[in-house]
Design a binder for these strands. Structure first.
Length: 239
DNA sequence: AACCGTTCCAACCGCAAACGG
DNA sequence: CCCGTTTGCGGTTGGAACGGT
């Protein structure tokens, strides 16, 4: 049998693979296809089973908890997708990798420079960040009342404030007090912060993170191209 | 309706690691 | 230890679906 099928799996092929594995289990991926009546490579069968057909897979969009977990794991492990997947039951390495590339990648690139006032403070911040790092993300997010939180054309300062646990407190922007909106974003939610990647052409798009004496953290930028978005955990969140 | 650019993910590929004779 | 085979991993991509004009 020389012909090897490639591309999308048909429902019939899926069923053959499921039936075979349910009956005989996985014993040898490379030999199994011909016994299962499949014109596929073992590699293709393995991938199809592991990433799609296995019964204990969780289907559907990532929950907020899963998103947060993936972000934190990525920030501590990097692109160790299988290691991350092991800690996230029901999600495969491929799924997490796809999720990262489609939803997170473009938002995680910006480094925020921390300029603590003292060495002690620096250590505190370092530990705090390890525990609960600043996270990033999505442009053009809709606020709770469908208010679009668009900071793209900022020509003034923006502040975002966290408490000593790095929990989000408030945000102020120009003359507009958006605290009322933000207050609806609850503690469990992730606040995302980044400079606009599209503004990379501009000469000085730095963002400074200032630690004040109260151990609050505020982010300040007077750069025209700086923008902030909030990544809301509300049910209407689209990611 | 037709076209076109973008988004997204299933599935591919190459390579590395693990296995086993 | 060696070497062929199998399994596992991470980067990449083809094309379907979607959204805008």
């Amino acid at each position: 049998m020389d012909y090897v099928k490639k591309g999308a799996w048909s429902p019939e092929e899926d069923q053959k693979l499921i039936d075979y594995i349910m009956k005989y289990g996985v014993w040898n991926w490379s030999h199994m296809p011909k016994f299962a009546g499949l014109s596929r490579t073992g590699k293709s069968c393995r991938l199809r089973w592991i990433n799609y057909l296995k019964p204990d897979l969780k289907k559907g969009p990532f929950s907020m908890e899963e998103v947060e977990f993936v972000i934190r794991m990525y920030q501590s492990l990097g692109n160790k997708w299988s290691a991350i997947a092991k800690e996230l039951p029901g999600r495969t390495d491929n799924e997490i990798k796809n999720f990262y590339h489609t939803h997170l990648k473009k938002h995680l690139g910006t480094k925020v420079e921390v300029k603590p006032k003292s060495r002690k403070k620096a250590k505190q911040i370092e530990m705090s960040i390890q525990k609960k790092p600043l996270i990033t993300t999505c442009p053009n997010i809709q606020g709770p009342d469908d208010q679009s939180l668009d900071f793209t054309n900022s020509s003034s300062s923006s502040y975002i404030t966290f408490d000593e646990n790095y929990d989000f407190l408030e945000i102020s922007y120009q003359d507009n007090d958006v605290t009322s909106i933000v207050n609806q974003v609850h503690d469990d939610n992730i606040v995302i912060l980044e400079s606009n990647p599209d503004s990379s052409t501009s000469s000085s798009s730095s963002v400074d993170l200032h630690i004040n004496d109260f151990m609050d953290v505020s982010v300040h930028s007077s750069n025209v191209d700086f923008w902030l978005d909030l990544y809301l955990a509300a049910d209407n969140l689209k990611i």
